[in-house]
Amino acid sequence: MPRKIAILATDKAIVGGIITLIETFDYCNMYWKTIKPESNELLFECSIVSPLGNPISNSAGVQLATKSLEQSNYLLDMDAVIVASTVISDQQSFNEYLLSFAPISQAIIEFKKLDRPISGYCSGVLVLAATGLLDHHKATCAWWLSSMFTQLYPQVHLSMDKIVIKDNGIFTAGAASANLSLALVLVRELANEKLASKISKLLLIDPNRSSQMPFIDRRLVPEHQDELIYKVQQWMQKDIQDNSSIEELSNRFAVSERTLIRRFKKATGETPAAYRQRLRVEEAKMLIESSNLSIEKISNSVGYEDISAFRKSFSRHTSLSPNAYRNRFKTEPLN
């Protein structure tokens, strides 16, 4: 009997991510047929499930046929479920997606009682968190949604150091392309390690891509609405070599040290000192990716006098050494 996988989605889901999942499992079926030509059964059978079974479409109008919850026997005949993602720009857009998922949420909770794999990736993890199934368990999501996630679901132990996390039988994965890593993990879970290894080679999926940390760039995402802290951040970004103390910063922006630290941490989740270190690492990452400067020169240019301290800070923020980061992300021209 094939392993049945339901991909849960509604309108505005990222269609490309859904198709990628389906085709990854289809590749498993094709590979299985090449090594077991006598077999008449598929390994995996995927279906897209929506609340009413209506076709779903993305913002570009691309449509996918779906089955309704009733057609899928409220998921109870499935071997695994995956919550698809959507593009989320703010809490309102997430609330709209979550509302469209309301009819499915209870079905996910019921499915958990069967002790079968439940998974989500990118913004789909926030939908899972809304069911309460992730409470007091470890999970990950798209790194650029982490601030919203922790505000909405502080009871979930959110971690950004892994691309896929398994806890309590639930698999969570990072941003959109992490669904490939999630698919590999599910192939391993529902079939075996050998098949997952073969498929990773066929599809050029790096099975050792385990951390999101090298990809995180907080400058890409606005983090808060505190105008004072935004001005402080802008000041710090103008000169990352500046070593102004908390006292000097508070005097410059006419606020007490205690208030500055409190508001800064509330807005960004970190202290001004920690934020300065992260700014320097982000600048160093850009220089490592785009230039041939030595690591020592880059260290000096972003405000570090001690190369050892720079290497430690860089590794703490990216999980890679500066040289390893260069080997992985340095942009090379195509010949």
Rank of each mutant, 00 (worst) to 15 (best):
L126F: 07
A191W: 04
V187E: 03
A173L: 03
Q212E: 03
N208Y: 14
A196Y: 02
I199M: 00
S119T: 02
C141E: 02
P154N: 05
Q151G: 10
E189P: 06
R219N: 12
K162T: 04
L190R: 10
K162Q: 10
A183M: 01
S211A: 11
L134S: 15
N192Q: 06
A176D: 10
F111M: 07
Q155H: 08
K198S: 11
A176G: 08
S177V: 15
M213G: 05
D206F: 15
E189A: 12
I163K: 15
P154E: 00
L220D: 13
I109S: 11
K138G: 01
L204D: 14
R218D: 06
A173F: 05
I216A: 00
C122A: 15
V156F: 00
S210G: 08
R209H: 10
L203D: 00
Q155A: 12
S177P: 14
T172H: 08
I118H: 07
T150L: 06
I216R: 00
L220Q: 13
I165S: 03
I205H: 02
S197L: 07
A173W: 00
K201Y: 05
D161S: 15
A173R: 00
M160K: 09
N192K: 11
T150R: 11
A178I: 05
Y121M: 07
S119V: 03
V127R: 12
D135W: 09
R188H: 09
W144A: 07
K194Q: 15
D115G: 10
S119L: 01
Q212M: 08
L184W: 09
G124K: 05
Q155S: 13
P154S: 01
K138D: 03
R218L: 11
S147Q: 14
L195E: 04
V187F: 06
I170Y: 00
V125L: 00
I109E: 08
L195D: 03
R219Y: 09
F111I: 01
D206Q: 07
K162H: 12
S146Y: 13
N168T: 06
I199T: 03
S177T: 15
H136Q: 11
M160Q: 15
V185W: 05
S177N: 12
L203S: 06
L114N: 10
M148K: 07
G174M: 00
A129W: 03
T140E: 00
F171Q: 04
L133Y: 02
L195A: 04
S211C: 12
C141R: 01
F111Y: 14
F111G: 09
C141I: 09
A130K: 10
T172W: 04
T150A: 10
V125C: 11
A129T: 06
A129E: 04
A176H: 14
D115A: 14
S197F: 08
G124L: 03
W143Q: 01
